[in-house]
């Protein structure tokens, strides 16, 4: 994961999941983060889209298996 993507994701995750201690990593999933549920997941997706100025398709979201997948997709969309 590129450091500039990780930095921005950290900001979004810390704010959406209300936990200043979160540091994202490639294999991170919802199971690891206490307040990551179906509702905050949608808020996180929207915030990520806003932060990076990208738009995910439904299929892209449902196929993301972890934060690494999302970071790769963001990178691809920004390229």
């Amino acid at each position: 994961m590129k450091p500039e993507i990780a930095d921005k994701l950290n900001t979004v995750f810390r704010s959406v999941f209300r936990n200043p201690g979160i540091t994202v990593h490639e294999d991170m999933t919802a199971a690891e983060v206490e307040s990551w549920d179906s509702l905050s997941h949608m808020t996180m997706i929207q915030e990520v889209e806003k932060t990076f100025g990208v738009k995910f398709k439904l299929k892209e979201i449902t196929r993301m298996k972890n934060v690494g997948d999302m970071a790769a997709l963001i990178e691809e969309k920004l390229a």
Partner: peptide, 10 residues
């Protein structure tokens, strides 16, 4: 294991 209701669409 699907975190969101979006998996319903799938």
């Amino acid at each position: 294991d699907g975190i969101s209701y979006l998996h319903i669409a799938e």
